[in-house]
Simulated assay, not measured.
Amino acid sequence: MFGSATDASGEEKNNESNPYLPQQQLPADELFTFNFKKNGGKFIYCESLPEVHDQFLNILEENDWFECEVLCMEPKLYSLLDENKLSYNNPSNPKFLLASCENLIADEGSILFSSNQIKQKKPNELPANIVIYATTSQILGSKSDGLRVIKKKYDKDYPTNITTIKYFEKAKEEDFLQYGSTAKNLYLLLLEDL
């Protein structure tokens, strides 16, 4: 009689870890963080705008990117470059790209860009080093969610060159899923805005 009660609870425990049962879904922000780091991205969480500026300065110090050229196509980010005396007007050999993004895609840990951030450049035409400024409200579950948000946000004036960057370090063993993709050294400055 007592054995059956413990056996039943043992069965329940086995059912909880059964690989054929659906796994409990992580919140989008945790899923993004996990997949982004798994892809080799460097994630820096910031609670305020002054902290974003401090962390950007830390990235510059870590990589010795002072007094260098930067590729930046978004006027709203120029102040960050100006305060650190970085050149961004017609760079001939930029050390890194500073950009925002359309969205952060949780299910694959990727960054969704459009022509608003990178104009008509393809990922392989961008510098090997990238610093992205984004907010927590930009985290979405999937690419289809990201495309839906772009469609709603821009109404009829859709941006072109919509693409994602997913791999942030060179794979030790390349598989066919990474064929044609260019690994980038990517830092994400993520500002809490929710």
Rank of each mutant, 00 (worst) to 15 (best):
T136W: 03
L194D: 11
G180D: 07
E61Q: 08
K95I: 04
L49R: 14
L177V: 05
E62K: 15
L49A: 15
F66D: 14
P94Q: 11
I59N: 02
Y88W: 08
I44E: 05
T136Q: 05
D193P: 01
N185M: 09
I44H: 12
K38F: 02
G141I: 10
A134Y: 14
T163S: 07
Y154Q: 03
A171L: 13
E62F: 09
F96P: 08
K184G: 07
I105F: 06
D64V: 13
S87V: 06
E69V: 04
N185V: 09
D155H: 09
C46V: 12
L71S: 09
K119T: 05
K156Y: 08
F113V: 10
D145E: 10
T136R: 08
S114M: 01
D145R: 12
E51C: 06
N15C: 10
N103Y: 15
S17C: 05
K122D: 04
S17R: 09
Q120P: 01
A8L: 10
F36S: 01
I165W: 01
L126I: 07
S17Q: 09
K172L: 02
N161S: 07
M1H: 10
Y179H: 14
P22E: 07
N14R: 15
F36H: 05
N15G: 13
E12R: 02
N124K: 05
E61K: 13
D193K: 03
K184L: 13
F34K: 11
D29N: 13
N93C: 10
S87Q: 12
P159E: 12
Y78K: 02
E102G: 08
A183D: 08
I132R: 03
S4V: 14
T160R: 08
M73R: 12
K184I: 15
S115T: 03
A8K: 11
A8R: 03
A134I: 09
I162L: 03
A128G: 02
L190C: 08
G10Y: 11
L186S: 03
F113N: 15
K170W: 00
C46K: 13
L31C: 12
K170T: 05
K184S: 07
Y88L: 04
A134R: 14
N116T: 12
E192Q: 15
V70H: 03
L194H: 11
K37I: 08
C101Q: 11
Q120A: 12
T182H: 00
I59E: 02
L189M: 01
N35L: 05
K38G: 06
K37P: 03
L190F: 01
N15H: 13
K119R: 15
S79Y: 13
N90Q: 10
P159H: 09
F36N: 06
Y88S: 10
L104P: 06
Y167P: 00
Y154V: 08
N89E: 13
T164L: 00
S110Y: 01
L98V: 00
P159Y: 10
F56R: 06
E74H: 13
L60M: 03
E192D: 15
S137Q: 14
F36T: 00
V131H: 14
C72L: 04
F34H: 11
E51T: 01
C72K: 01
S181H: 07
F66N: 09
Q55A: 09
S17G: 06
L147S: 07
I130Q: 04
I165E: 00
T182N: 00
S17L: 11
K119S: 04
K166T: 00
